[in-house]
Nucleic acid binder design. Structure first.
Lengths: 159, 159
DNA sequence: CAAGTAAGTTCCAATTAGGAACTGATAGTC
DNA sequence: GACTATCAGTTCCTAATTGGAACTTACTTG
């Protein structure tokens, strides 16, 4: 199977990765959350080649994560802004950054601290069940298959 | 800049992506959380080519996310198990899957529902501040630079 | 002895990435 | 009026990675 075809899998994770799972894409989104909007700014901050950046921005715009907005005419210039769909990826990025803070920082410590403005404390993200409020671990989750794909998604005991 | 060098950036997200940001890697981890441990099982479920799978498993093991454990001698065979570091990625995968459920499902609906065993309700993951318990949006976060890299991480108003 | 299992490795063609230069429309400066 | 800068890309070439299939090694089972 080709990577470019994973969006056809009946798996929400696979479909998500079809949009944001390419090299560089999540770093583009990191910069979007920092307020970067313009092509050359992305390019200089990331050091990615221009045609890869062009490809990733196009895929993000096609996927609905960013919108391409003209900020001037003559000459026509566009910038890229997060949509509501894009802003909904913030928890993914926050958890990934926190994971890197925990396991991959060097002696100088994590490069950035994310402070919650409302309470003034550094953000400590946890996966919580919003129904009961308890912290959730992988083994606390039971998966229920949609009957439409029953038996085709989860591994069997044999395999 | 080459993608393979992003682990040298002073950015926890970039360093995380150096380990799990390649094509296929997060799908390998999805299957790990479903209990898949063996090479051929990953290969058949994912449809990824065997040498790409081999490369990704090696990078995950080198990065500390999986450990390679012998499950038999003669012939020597290994399986791959999540470490504590790997299990800490569960919130990332849960949020990504939930994002796909919300925006990318087809008519038949999300393929899997994640039910919290303790309370019996479908998991609805949100980013919450564990200090004050409030739900957190991107604009609620203020970034503080580690003085060691002050001025080098965040974009300026000019750029 | 032949076939099966399991975890890879090897080979080749096709795709993608990295690096640098180039394009096109326009504005500002000498 | 020519020269330079800005900005969002595109084009070109080489190098690296991927997809697909076959092959290898070390056993076990019938």
């Amino acid at each position: 199977m080709r990577w470019q075809d994973i969006d056809q899998q009946p798996c929400s994770l696979a479909r998500s990765l079809a949009i944001i799972g390419d090299n560089w894409t999540l770093l583009v989104l990191r910069d979007c959350f920092l307020g970067v909007r313009r092509f050359d700014d992305f390019q200089q901050r990331l050091g990615v080649t221009r045609h890869v950046l062009s490809d990733r921005l196009r895929k993000l715009a096609d996927g609905g994560v960013l919108e391409k907005v003209a900020y001037q005419e003559r000459p026509l210039r566009h910038e890229y802004r997060l949509t509501a769909m894009g802003r909904d990826l913030y928890p993914v990025i926050a958890h990934l950054a926190q994971w890197g803070d925990k396991y991959l920082a060097d002696e100088a410590g994590p490069p950035l601290v994310r402070v919650h403005r409302q309470c003034g404390e550094p953000l400590v993200a946890k996966l919580q069940c919003s129904h009961c409020g308890d912290s959730v671990e992988p083994q606390d989750i039971r998966l229920e298959e949609n009957p439409h794909w029953a038996g085709a998604l989860l591994p069997t005991k044999a395999g």
